[in-house]
Design a protein around this nucleic acid. Structure first.
Lengths: 132, 132
DNA sequence: TTCAATCCCTATCAATTTCCTGGGTATTAT
DNA sequence: ATAATACCCAGGAAATTGATAGGGATTGAA
């Protein structure tokens, strides 16, 4: 049960954006440089985050990416759910599991899913970059 | 971030063993029938659980598998750590991450790892099969 | 108005991991 | 002896992931 590198790298990129919140947009090449990622790969991560309304971008010369909300209002949970396409630990949590009632293990997954989200939703981007 | 089917299926098999705890050994074909798994695949899962001392087996005719400890003394956490080869959500938790100190995200993974284990260690096999 | 910088879209490929199957061996109760 | 059982190891199909590539659309600024 591993987090994908999409999640790990994407969160780093979000930290970078948080560090410079309020200073205008950061270009893709700049963020790539700071995070040691290829521009092309990073681009894909940012496009997911944008689709989920966590960041926004301006095109054209001197454009770039920026957080859509202040760092204290964005939780790590939101970011990872976006990048990982949900944090459901097993499929029956997302789809409709037809035998929730009789399944011995369903309750475990549901409880764990709750704990994971609670934990991650309790950490804001701001906390992260301030090392608090 | 998904649990592998090793974890899901293996836990089901453990539930089956728990249901019949104290009644002697259950054969591989029997457990496979109850869990709807192929014997060969299930065999591999059970061998992992055995290596990690959660179950034991007797060979020869009328042999089979059985829990090494009573169901109330075996936690779901132990079982999943065995089957999943640890529940470390990112690699830097298991190996030695050389820049723990400066990494913004390390703290997130450490905290989450703790919560996951705490949650799963708090559920016993007995609770599971008794639907409690 | 042109041009360069930038974001945007989509296809593809290589590597890894996961899931599962199969064949053969060792052990033991009956 | 024989049949039922666990044990071991090898390999391969399928899915996922990580990463690269090329070209298109938009826009600020010279």
């Amino acid at each position: 049960m591993k987090l994908s590198s999409k999640g790990r790298y994407g969160l780093k990129a979000m930290c970078e954006l948080a560090k410079h919140y309020g200073e205008g947009a950061l270009s893709l090449p700049y963020i790539a440089g700071e995070t040691f990622l290829s521009e092309k790969y990073l681009e894909q991560l940012l496009s997911v985050l944008k689709k989920d309304n966590l960041i926004d971008a301006t095109r054209g010369a001197s454009g770039g990416y920026f957080l859509k909300r202040p760092p204290e209002e964005i939780s790590v949970g939101e970011i990872l759910r976006s990048l990982e396409n949900g944090l459901e630990i097993v499929d029956c949590l997302s789809g409709d599991c037809r035998n929730k009632a009789t399944c011995h293990t369903y309750g475990v997954w549901a409880k764990l899913y709750g704990e994971i989200n609670k934990c991650l939703d309790g950490i804001s981007l701001k906390q992260l970059v301030e090392g608090d």
